[in-house]
C-alpha cells in the first residue's frame, strides 16, 4: 500500500486534532478504519436502543397502574429516540439508514446482548432501569467526550434522558420493597437474573479486548472495559444495600487496600454465545423487529406516494 504525500499530511492533521482532544467532524478527512470502527459502534449502539424497546415494551399493556404505564411509555419512547439520534450520527459517516436497518434485521450487525434476556416480571422493568440503564450510563457518560463530534453530541442527549430511566427503575424497586414479602422476593429474583448480564455489558476483560488500545488511541473510547465495570460495581453495591437486595456473587466484597470492591467474573462463554445468537430471546427479538418493519411497509409506501402527489 502506498500513501501519497497528501494523505500523509491529512493523517497528521487528523492525529493532531485527536491528540488535543478536539473533535473530528463529518466533513473532515479521517482514516478509513476509524470511520469503519465508528460506523460499527454507532450503528450497533443504535440497534441496541431500538431492540431495547422490546423487553420492556411488552409490559406496557400490563402495567400495574396508570402512573406506571405513563412512565413506561415515556421510557420506551425515549429508547426509540436514542436509536434515532444514533442513526442520525451514523449517517454522517456515509452510511444510509435503510442499509443499517437491513443489516440489523438480517442479523449481520449485532446489538447489546443484554436485550436477549427475557423480562419475566414487572420487577424486571425496575431492574432494567436501575442496573441495565445504570451500566449504560457508566458506558455512555465518557462517550460524551468521544473524538467524533456527532457521536458525542448524541450521547449528551442520551445521557440527560438516561438519568430518568435509572431513577424511575430504582423508585419502582423501592416501592416494591416496601410491599409484601412476595413483592420483595420478586425484586430479589429479578436482580439475581440481571446482575451477571449487566456486568457483561462492559465487554470482556481488558486482556481479551484487542480493540481497546486502538479505540483509545483514536479517542473513541475513554476508559477500558474493566475500569468501567469496576466503577459500576462500586456504584451499585451501596444502592443495593439501601434497597435491601443482594447480588448473586459470593466473591463480592470491599477491598480496603484497593479502595474498590472485589467481584467475580461473569460467564464469558455465555456472553459470546448470546452475541452469536444463542441467547434466550435472540430469535424472538429479531423476528419482532423484522415483523414491525414489514408491517410498516404499506405506511411508508403510502407516505411516499402522498408526498409525491403533493410535490
Amino acid at each position: 500500500m502506498t500513501i501519497d504525500h497528501d494523505e500523509h499530511d491529512l493523517q497528521e492533521r487528523f492525529e493532531a486534532v485527536v491528540a488535543r482532544h478536539d473533535r473530528i467532524e463529518p466533513r473532515d478527512w479521517m482514516p478509513e478504519q476509524y470511520r469503519a470502527t465508528l460506523v460499527r459502534q454507532i450503528a450497533q449502539h443504535a440497534h441496541s436502543e431500538i431492540i431495547g424497546m422490546q423487553p420492556e415494551g411488552g409490559w406496557i399493556t400490563r402495567a400495574p397502574s396508570l402512573r406506571r404505564k405513563a412512565i413506561l411509555l415515556a421510557k420506551v419512547q425515549d429508547e426509540a429516540g436514542h436509536g434515532l439520534y444514533l442513526y442520525s450520527a451514523a449517517e454522517t459517516l456515509g452510511v444510509s439508514r435503510a442499509e443499517l436497518t437491513d443489516k440489523l434485521i438480517s442479523g449481520r450487525q449485532k446489538y447489546s446482548s443484554i436485550f436477549n434476556y427475557p423480562t419475566l416480571s414487572y420487577a424486571d422493568v425496575g431492574t432494567i432501569g436501575w442496573l441495565v440503564d445504570g451500566a449504560a450510563i457508566c458506558n455512555q457518560v465518557p462517550l460524551c467526550r468521544t473524538s467524533y463530534g456527532p457521536y458525542g453530541r448524541a450521547m449528551i442527549r442520551v445521557c440527560k434522558e438516561e438519568s430518568f430511566h435509572q431513577r424511575q427503575g430504582f423508585e419502582l424497586l423501592m416501592t416494591m420493597m416496601r410491599g409484601t414479602d412476595e413483592q420483595r422476593a420478586m425484586v430479589q429474583e429479578s436482580v439475581d437474573r440481571f446482575w451477571w448480564p449487566a456486568l457483561m455489558m462492559f465487554g470482556p476483560p481488558d486482556d481479551d479486548s484487542p480493540n481497546t488500545a486502538q479505540s483509545m488511541a483514536w479517542g473513541i473510547k475513554r476508559d477500558t472495559n474493566d475500569e468501567l465495570r469496576q466503577k459500576f460495581v462500586d456504584m451499585s453495591v451501596p444502592q443495593a444495600e439501601r434497597l435491601g437486595v443482594t447480588f448473586p456473587d459470593p466473591e463480592l466484597r470491599w477491598n480496603p487496600e484497593r479502595g474498590h470492591h472485589d467481584f467475580g467474573q461473569p460467564d464469558w462463554d455465555e456472553f459470546r454465545a448470546v452475541v452469536r445468537g444463542e441467547g434466550p430471546c435472540n430469535a424472538q427479538r429479531l423476528a419482532h423487529r423484522r415483523r414491525a418493519h414489514d408491517d410498516g411497509a404499506w405506511v411508508r409506501d403510502a407516505a411516499t406516494a402522498f408526498a409525491r402527489r403533493g410535490a
Binding site: S112, A136, N139, Q140, L143, M155, V158, M201, G203, S215
Partner: peptide
C-alpha cells in the same frame, strides 16, 4: 469493545 454504549 464495551463502546457499544448500551452494552458491548
Amino acid at each position: 469493545s464495551a463502546d457499544g454504549g448500551h452494552g458491548a
